[in-house]
Amino acid sequence: MSKKIHADATSALSGLLRDGLLIAAGGFGLCGIPELLIAAIRDSGVKDLTVASNNAGVDGFGLGVLLETRQVRKMISSYVGENAEFMRQYLSGELELEFNPQGTLAERMRAGGAGIPGFYTKTGVGTVIAEGKEHHDFDGETYILERGIVADLAIVKAWKADPSGNLVFRKTARNFNVPAATCGKVCVAEVEEIVPLGALDPDTIHLPGIYVHRIVQGPHEKRIEQRTTRKKEAV
């Protein structure tokens, strides 16, 4: 089980990267993003990537660094704000974008991880989201078919792990990390702390180690996406 632990992000991704990969990435904005693994993917030089992620980080950080180096061919996302380069590439036709409602994207990942090839949802009916998709009526209501996502590689960020790969996430940093992890054929997790086997209460484990193939521990910047402050009031 200790063979899952790697010394750094580069070794954790060794043998897994190639051009044209479909990657599922955890995170929401800059919260809970696998920043070390993203940097290692950038440094590897692989290209023509398709990345399924709620968004693409910000300019110069998170998945935004892969857009700057033109390593991403297509994004499967629900939000393109906060990243000027993302918007520029999309509007100029340099980047393919498959828009997904946020809940639909989460369920597509979850379904793929559960072995469910597709599901019907009312979300998006009557909009451009529904164009080209199968429609079906259930009890007088129209639904569209969405396909589950099965990624070649999943990259996620967790708070704690044990040597067997059991993961615990920190509050809202759990976000898309669990469904992203489960839908990957191979899942690599970066964590803040690795604890001894048996140190985690089984009731607190958010993702069982059977889904996690490799682990790397390292320092994280955990940048704040939008810092909002107010002036100190005079006493």
Rank of each mutant, 00 (worst) to 15 (best):
G198W: 03
F138E: 13
E85W: 04
V150H: 06
N54C: 11
E192M: 14
K122L: 11
P208I: 01
V65R: 06
G20M: 04
Y211N: 09
L67D: 06
G15Q: 07
E134K: 14
A12G: 07
E85N: 13
D59H: 09
I155A: 02
E190V: 00
V186P: 08
S53L: 01
E134L: 07
M75N: 02
T142C: 08
A40W: 07
D19I: 04
A158L: 06
S11R: 12
E131Q: 15
R170I: 04
E82T: 12
G103P: 00
V186G: 10
G29K: 08
V156S: 06
A181M: 08
E85C: 11
F86E: 03
P179C: 04
V80L: 14
M1N: 12
D139C: 14
A181Y: 05
T50F: 04
R214P: 13
L200K: 11
F99A: 06
Y120F: 14
A158K: 00
N100A: 12
G113Y: 02
A114K: 14
V80R: 13
R227V: 15
G62R: 07
K157A: 15
G209R: 02
I149L: 03
D43F: 07
L37C: 10
L167M: 05
K160D: 00
T229Y: 12
T123P: 03
L30G: 07
M75L: 15
P196I: 05
A158H: 08
L97C: 08
G60L: 10
L63V: 02
D59Q: 13
L13H: 12
L105N: 03
I215T: 03
N175M: 04
V58W: 11
I5Q: 10
D201P: 08
A39S: 15
E96C: 05
L66T: 09
P179T: 09
Q217V: 15
L17W: 05
P208C: 01
T121P: 06
L145W: 11
E221R: 12
G148S: 01
E96M: 08
P208W: 01
R227C: 11
I41N: 13
L30M: 14
G132Q: 00
A25K: 08
G103K: 00
G32P: 06
G132Y: 00
D201N: 13
E35T: 10
I149Q: 00
V191C: 00
E134M: 07
P208D: 02
R88S: 10
F169N: 03
D152W: 02
G140P: 07
Q102N: 13
V46R: 01
R70E: 13
E225S: 15
E146Q: 15
G32Q: 08
R42Q: 11
D203T: 14
L95F: 03
V72W: 11
I149S: 00
L30C: 07
E141N: 12
